[in-house]
C-alpha cells in the first residue's frame, strides 16, 4: 500500500511534526521504501501465534497505596520553557 502526499501530511499532523509542502514528495518516497521493505512480514504464517506482550516472563509488579512522591513543584517546573504561579504555561487553548 503506497503512501501518497496526503497520507504523509495526515501522518505528520497526527505526529505534530510540521512538514513543508516541498518536502512531502521526498518523504513519501522514503516512507514507501521502508514500508515496502517491512511488508515482507506478511509472508510469515502467524496463524494462532500470540503477539509478543513482553520478553520477560515476570508478573506485573504492584505497588502499595502509599504517598511517596510529590511536593517537588520546583523540580517539576525546573526545566519549563514557561511557568507562572506554579503552573506550566502554553499558548491559549480554546476548547
Amino acid at each position: 500500500m503506497a503512501i501518497d502526499k496526503a497520507t504523509v501530511l495526515r501522518i505528520a499532523q497526527l505526529a505534530r511534526i510540521e512538514v513543508k509542502d516541498e518536502a512531502l514528495d521526498e518523504l513519501a518516497g522514503e516512507l514507501n521504501g521502508i514500508l515496502a521493505w517491512v511488508e515482507q512480514l506478511g509472508e510469515v504464517d502467524t496463524e494462532g501465534v500470540a503477539p509478543m506482550t513482553s520478553v520477560v516472563e515476570v508478573k506485573l509488579p504492584r505497588r502499595d497505596d502509599h504517598v511517596s512522591d510529590g511536593g517537588r513543584r520546583d523540580d517539576i517546573l525546573a526545566n519549563a520553557p514557561e511557568a507562572e504561579d506554579g503552573f506550566f504555561v502554553v499558548p491559549k487553548v480554546i476548547e
Binding site: 505534530r16 511534526i17 510540521e18 519549563a80 520553557p81 502554553v90 499558548p91
Partner: peptide, 19 residues
C-alpha cells in the same frame, strides 16, 4: 512537545507550537 522542558518554538497557536 515544548511544554515542560527542552526546546519550544513560537507558533500561531498551541498546535502550531507543537508542530
Amino acid at each position: 512537545d515544548g511544554v515542560r522542558y527542552g526546546l519550544r518554538l513560537k507558533g500561531e497557536d498551541l498546535r502550531d507550537m507543537y508542530a
